[in-house]
Design a protein around this nucleic acid. Structure first.
Lengths: 205, 205, 205, 205
DNA sequence: TATGAATGAGGGTTCATTCAT
DNA sequence: CATGAATGAACCCTCATTCAT
């Protein structure tokens, strides 16, 4: 990679970082391209060399940040000895919740954008991408000795359940703080998994 | 109520109706106050006699529309003979899902705004309001012979779970259409309720 | 007309006058809306209350100014005793040339825009307009006792001939100054008319 | 000519050809230098090695294209046996009209720019230029046995007359299509020539 | 000679808000 | 109460031009 290419990459990253900083602190609507380029220390026109508009940079940020979160959680999981499916999924949920708890602005940003659409898109387009493999997480379910009615729907429900409940709790302490809420969430996850299992008693055997 | 008061009310309602129509069809950001007053047939200045700005009218609409949805569901429930808690909650969920399914733009509008925050706000401020009593729904849980660790958290989790899963399914058919998804959702709800029950076998007795 | 309407008309006219002034001195491309509103002493937004964009105001100006020129020439003609067709047409041409000569910026502005398209448009749309009646000029030919192969084509050729030759002469003195050129132009007009006459000797009878 | 010179010439020509293509299809204002260099396959900076700006390349194109048109017409004339002045001029006019008719975008481009100014400029600067000799056409008049009041003015009037009438007809079919208009134009030319002749009956002798 | 990333002034346009009527 | 003409700050985006490589 030439010196010029390196410089380009640096500019692009400066814009991404600055935009993220502003999006999370001011909100997307209130952040203007002017704000971004000013804070990033580049000229206005430079922004348009790298991104089509504000929504282009937003989408790229969401995908990038969401990727990282799953990647971090997945890496942590691989360092454990957990084998039970319930335990593995709850470990992931807990890790992700903790990441969000540690960086609330990140939660506010990707929060309700972390929908099944992006999830699926990433699963599909993650082919040779350097970004994370959501696929790993998906395979957690597929490779389990236990079998489920519909693994995709199960995963979908868990993701939606966790993200929507922790959003309210972490950001607004509603209906209670996240530490208090966690056991309820984890219990519920175990029950949701059980509700979808073809042989509900399999795990007892 | 005098003739002038009636006229005032009519103007206010024209603005609310028009704003809702435009918000759901064009999106909030793309709807301008100009659009609203033009379609409502009132002068620009008049808008500011009734609302502070675009977000004021939006908030009032969300609360109003969300109220109606719960109210409709609650009314329908009271016409049934259902006594079991599970059945009553699932009846409500089903009714609300169907309302959203029948009016997708409504779902897009209040969508992820139908959070615990608004829920609580309404519970608190519903004092003398002509708008619905979320409280009725809350009491469904309180008055059940079965007892739960924390009824508020239980209700919270169910609301979040239902609203986030049906959003993706109804609007984007992801991960599947709502008819297919429903049984999974309802099963999961039953398990979530069970997970929170103090005496898990109570319902077997 | 109310006081407010009068004020509106004044603003509109201020914009038209200022735009014309700038278009003729700086050229249309180099004139910005900023320039116009600044010089007119109104806010930028006000421009958009009256005109769609720069080209809207330009078109309105061209039609307006072209109308006036024909109107002035026509009025002058009606005050003469000229009866011969050749004489009447040449009187009009001379009058118009003199108007352009007296206001060269006007010539530069409508110059090559004064095409048959606008001519026809005005003929068609001049119904109840307060703007001039190009129709009068057209009827000069129609009502003449002499008859022509195709009066519209004849008029078209004369208009194009006069406007294109006097443009170069008045603005650039090419190939010579307008006073020197005029007799050539008028001779040529007489011959063009004659070339289109069905009975070329009619005027001798 | 060295290899590098050849390469230079190729770049220059690529820019000219691409610019012409874009000017005629998109219009001059809507064509950006970016568009030109991109389509020409050269770097942005390279443009400025050969041309001052967009208007520099436009002027060079107009002169070049106008030259070619006269050159083509002149070549065709030299292959005829026509001796009469009227016939020779009308042959040229017809040939030029047909070239424009065959390539309407070319007409739109040089259209009303094909004025006496460029004509004269070319006459003057055609010294050592590889571009055509307008002078040949000019000498058509000079060398005729018939004599005219002012040959330059005569030629000027014919050029302006033909170019302005055929512009409207070819591009907009106004006031009629070019085939219908032609006889009128040619008749008029003959009369214009006659109007400028010192001994109007010379051609009868 | 050739490149193309970077620039940033300046373009057109929108729209929430005000206030004299 | 109601109006709607006027405002002007702020927006997004373009693009001719430069200059280090």
């Amino acid at each position: 990679m030439g010196k010029s290419d390196l410089n380009k990459q640096k500019k692009r990253e400066a814009l991404l970082n600055t935009a993220f900083e502003l999006f999370t602190t001011q909100g997307i609507t209130r952040t203007t391209i002017n704000n971004i380029v000013e804070a990033a220390g580049v000229a206005k026109g430079t922004f348009y060399l790298y991104f089509k508009d504000k929504y282009d940079i937003r989408n790229k940020l969401i995908a990038h940040k969401a990727s990282r979160i799953f990647s971090v959680a997945d890496d942590a999981l691989s360092k454990t000895q957990l084998t039970e499916l319930d335990d593995r999924i709850i470990f992931l949920a807990d890790n992700i919740i903790e990441q969000f708890n540690a960086d609330k602005s990140l939660l506010g940003f990707i929060s309700k954008n972390l929908s099944w659409g992006i999830f699926k898109n990433e699963l599909i387009s993650s082919g040779g991408s350097s970004d994370v493999d959501f696929y790993n997480i998906y395979t957690v379910l597929e490779n389990s000795p236990r079998s489920f009615k519909n693994p995709e729907i199960l995963l979908f429900m868990i993701v939606e359940f966790v993200s929507s409940t922790c959003y309210s709790s972490i950001l607004y302490n509603e209906p209670t703080d996240i530490e208090t809420l966690k056991p309820y969430i984890f219990d519920a996850i175990r029950q949701i998994i059980r509700s979808q299992e073809l042989d509900p008693d399999a795990y007892l055997k």
